[in-house]
């Protein structure tokens, strides 16, 4: 098997562009998904079942249906409802954020509920209100426990952003497919994409491990 380095060199600028968009998609979706996930997780934890219900439905839908279906639905059906011109990048960020939020909501809920009840009681007995107790006592502790599952989710998200290629968002996988289409070669584009994804996910898990170590109190 000959490996054609020359076409890889030719495509390098596109791969670079694609990688930057992949990073962009991932960072945007991680940020939006985390904020949204916290909100949905807190919503699902509300004592009033009727109020918590929509959040449960949300999580059920986004966890229970394939991301590919969601991305096609949002790109071709949902976004055109609101915008005249649909944008693949926008649709990709939207789908990835909404999808990640469902998983992150459950991570937040598990993290918060894993903190001993006494912590909330101690905070409240000192006169702090519910929001202050959450912010200064419960969430910082819950966050520490949430880093490993969150890291997992972020890594999944980076990988799943490759589905955006199917709605022609020019991210890494899009250029991989373009290269395959142009040269009818499979090893070069897909191995290159795989290596780049691996570099991205490894860098992220390295950063998360360092964060975890920094937050350790012992």
């Amino acid at each position: 098997m000959d490996f054609r380095w020359d076409i890889l060199v030719e495509y390098a600028p596109f791969f670079l562009k694609g990688t930057l968009l992949t990073i962009g998609l991932s960072i945007a979706s991680i940020l939006i998904g985390t904020v949204l996930g916290l909100f949905i997780g807190l919503g699902k934890m509300m004592k009033n079942r009727l109020l918590a219900w929509p959040f449960t439905i949300y999580i059920t839908f986004f966890r229970g249906t394939p991301l590919l279906v969601q991305i096609l639905l949002i790109h071709f059906a949902v976004v055109p409802l609101f915008l005249d011109e649909t944008s693949p990048v926008l649709a990709a960020i939207l789908t990835l954020s909404l999808n990640a939020a469902a998983y992150i909501a459950e991570i937040f809920r598990a993290g918060i509920q894993s903190i001993d009840r006494g912590q909330m009681e101690a905070a409240r007995s000192l006169g702090m209100n519910h929001v202050q107790s959450m912010r200064f006592v419960i969430l910082p502790q819950a966050f520490k426990r949430m880093i490993p599952p969150l890291g997992n989710e972020f890594i999944v998200l980076i990988k799943e952003s490759s589905l955006a290629a199917l709605i022609a968002a020019p991210e890494l996988m899009y250029w991989g497919r373009a290269m395959q289409g142009q040269y009818f070669r499979v090893w070069e584009p897909y191995l290159a994409a795989a290596v780049i994804y691996l570099v991205l996910t490894l860098s992220l898990s390295f950063l998360l491990t360092r964060l975890e170590r920094r937050l350790a109190t012992e």
Binding site: G118, E121, A122, S125, L126, G127, V137, Q141, L215
Partner: peptide, 20 residues
């Protein structure tokens, strides 16, 4: 109730110190 609680200190069996 938050204002009342500032006047009433509580000590628990399990201490409940904030570990972080």
């Amino acid at each position: 109730i938050n204002k009342v609680r500032t006047e009433v200190g509580m000590v628990f069996q399990q201490f409940n110190l904030f570990p972080h």
